[in-house]
Simulated assay, not measured.
Amino acid sequence: MAAIPRSLPLLALRLALAVPFYKSGLTKWDGFLQLSGGAEFLFGAEFKLHIFGSQYPYPFPMAAAYGAGIAEIVLPILLVAGLFTRFAAFGLLVMTAVIQITVPEGWANFHLPWAAMALTLVVFGGGKIALDAFRERRR
């Protein structure tokens, strides 16, 4: 196993974490900064925060929808490029936590693996196959 460079699994983690968030982000937009009707409905009426056995509506649901939509496009792009990898992974880790309290039944199949991938990238960074490594070499 020593023949596998450490950067290769980090690249795989970056891609694996980026794909579901990016695909989800694409569903939130009907055009440039134009939220889809589905995103407006979900954040405005459907999504609830499940905290301590109670359900609460999202505070500022349209701001949350815009924020999630932008983050789900920008952060995965940064991850794939390996640019500001730790920041992007931390952002997706925070988003995963919010998704967990929104859809608590998804923890085993989705949220736990996403959190594990994001936490690994926060700790280890993007590896040598990343723009972060290129930036570090130029310093």
Rank of each mutant, 00 (worst) to 15 (best):
G69A: 05
A68C: 02
L83G: 05
P76S: 10
V80F: 02
G69S: 03
A88P: 01
T85R: 07
L75W: 05
F87C: 00
I77Y: 02
F87E: 00
E72W: 06
L75R: 07
L79Q: 07
G91F: 06
L79C: 04
A68Q: 02
A65P: 09
F60G: 12
G67K: 09
F90A: 15
F84D: 00
G82I: 02
A71K: 05
A88T: 03
L83V: 03
A81I: 00
V74D: 08
F90G: 11
I70T: 05
G69D: 03
A68K: 03
A81P: 00
A63S: 14
A71V: 05
A71W: 01
I70N: 05
I73M: 14
I70P: 03
A89L: 08
G91K: 09
A89Q: 05
L75D: 07
A71G: 15
V74T: 13
A81N: 04
A71L: 15
F90E: 06
I73V: 15
F90R: 02
A88E: 04
A63V: 15
A88H: 00
Y66W: 08
V74E: 09
M62R: 13
R86P: 04
A81Q: 10
A63T: 14
L83P: 02
I70D: 10
T85S: 09
P76D: 07
M62I: 15
L78R: 01
L78P: 00
G67M: 10
F60W: 13
L75N: 10
I70G: 09
G67F: 13
F84Y: 14
F60S: 14
M62T: 11
L83S: 02
T85P: 05
F90I: 12
G82A: 04
M62H: 05
A65T: 13
L75V: 11
A88V: 09
L83R: 08
A65K: 05
T85N: 13
L83N: 03
F84V: 06
I73C: 06
V74Q: 08
V74P: 10
I73H: 10
Y66V: 12
G82Y: 00
G67N: 11
A71D: 06
R86K: 13
G69V: 04
G67R: 13
A88F: 04
G91A: 12
Y66S: 02
G69M: 01
F87V: 11
I70R: 06
R86L: 03
A71N: 08
A68W: 00
E72G: 11
G82V: 00
L79T: 07
R86I: 01
F84E: 05
A63H: 11
P61T: 10
A63L: 15
P61K: 12
E72Q: 15
F84Q: 14
L75E: 05
A68E: 00
L78W: 00
R86W: 03
G67T: 15
T85F: 11
L79D: 06
A88I: 03
P76K: 08
T85M: 15
L75P: 04
G69N: 01
I77S: 11
I73T: 14
F87M: 08
A89E: 10
R86Q: 13
L83F: 13
V74S: 06
P61G: 12
G67C: 10
